Simulated scan of single mutants.
Amino acid sequence: MRAGRARAVPARGRAAAGAPRARRGRPARAGRAAARPGPRRGARAVILALLQTLRPRQWTKNLLLFAGVLFSLQITQLPLLGRAAAGFAAFCLLSGLVYLLNDLLDVEADRQHAAKRHRPIASGRLPQGVAWGAMLPIAGGAAAIAWWLGPAFTVAAALYLGLNLAYSFGLKKQVLIDVFIIATGFVLRAIAGVELLLPVSPGTEISPWLLVCTFFGALFLGLAKRRRELENAGVHAGKSREVLRHYSPELLDGLLLVTAAASLMSYALYTIWPGTVEKFGTEALLWTVPFVAYGIFRYLFLVRAWSGSEDPSQVLLSDRPMAATVVLYVVAVVAILYGT
């Protein structure tokens, strides 16, 4: 019995002695080797998280900056097209700056939202200090581009930024005013798309009817976004977005019908307005009305049938019939305006 115990003790001793040596050996070296590239991977992850917070998918809204050069029949002039592209870049930076600020201000509410809690700031993948620090160079880049494009464009860009700052710091909680601010932001994009051309093409102008179409179309999209948000959030709507407490499905459905009709009618009137016919020398733009009508009806359908329709940009990029409609509309407009 004693011998058995004596043999058992060294066995336990060897096992105990061997374990630390194994931890100090290869596994430890492997851990140190794996740790060396960690900071580089961490920096890349933060940069990607910052880019995601700037919402590149939402930059499709800024394509409206090209409306001025398209409808002024100057899209074939490369210098003017280049200025429109610069304006597009400036508004992408500005809108990204606004998204960054909104995510910083709404971080606690986003953490209560089923989808928004995965955003980089809400999930912790993008440190809040890094997000605040990135705002200055982003604003500086937008300001530099705006200064190059001229004072009138700078004013339009500043109004856009000021309006969105007011939205972020309180107006987003005001029922109806929130969607009116969204619509006004689209109108300012359209105006900026004209103002950036004026320093080198003084005769450029945009039809007031087109601005009316832009306003009602953007108002329609904003109301559709609220309608889908309300349905997706259910009884927790007020926690995910405070203004949703004041909306009801019946109110939003009625407003959607009004804005859809106003968008379609204003565009149809624009295509046959005497000033439009005189400017383009044709009434053929009337043939693009079916594309606009289908796009509006399709979006109304998606608002009620698809939970992903909460984001207009995602609809444009994900719904094939909608994307095809937009492409066909642009092709038809270019063919009519530049082929006649």
Rank of each mutant, 00 (worst) to 15 (best):
R29L: 07
R29Y: 02
A30P: 04
G31Y: 13
G31A: 15
G31E: 14
A33L: 15
A34E: 14
A34L: 15
R36C: 02
R36W: 05
P37G: 02
P37K: 04
G38D: 07
G38E: 13
R40C: 12
R41W: 12
R41L: 14
R41Y: 10
R41P: 00
G42N: 11
G42W: 12
G42L: 14
R44C: 04
R44N: 02
A45Q: 15
A45D: 15
V46E: 15
I47M: 13
I47A: 15
L48Q: 09
L48E: 08
A49S: 13
L50V: 03
L51S: 11
L51P: 07
T53V: 04
L54Y: 12
L54W: 10
R55L: 05
R55W: 06
R55P: 00
P56H: 12
P56E: 11
P56R: 12
Q58H: 13
W59G: 02
W59I: 02
W59A: 01
W59D: 04
K61Q: 06
N62H: 12
N62C: 10
L63M: 14
L63I: 09
L64S: 07
L64P: 00
L65E: 05
L65Q: 12
F66I: 08
F66N: 10
A67C: 10
A67N: 07
G68V: 03
G68F: 05
V69H: 11
V69K: 13
V69N: 10
L70N: 03
L70A: 02
F71E: 07
F71L: 15
F71K: 13
S72Y: 03
S72I: 00
L73Y: 02
L73P: 04
L73E: 07
L73N: 05
L73G: 04
Q74E: 11
Q74M: 10
Q74S: 11
I75E: 06
T76R: 14
T76C: 08
T76A: 11
Q77I: 01
Q77K: 09
Q77P: 00
L78H: 08
L78D: 05
P79A: 07
P79M: 10
P79K: 14
L81M: 09
G82E: 12
G82N: 08
R83C: 01
A84E: 09
A84N: 12
A84F: 11
A86H: 00
A86Y: 00
G87P: 00
G87N: 02
G87D: 05
G87C: 01
G87E: 04
G87A: 03
F88I: 05
F88T: 02
A89W: 04
F91M: 07
L93Y: 08
L94R: 03
L94V: 01
S95Y: 12
S95C: 13
G96R: 01
L97K: 06
L100W: 11
L100D: 04
L100H: 10
L101P: 01
L101N: 03
L101H: 00
L101E: 03
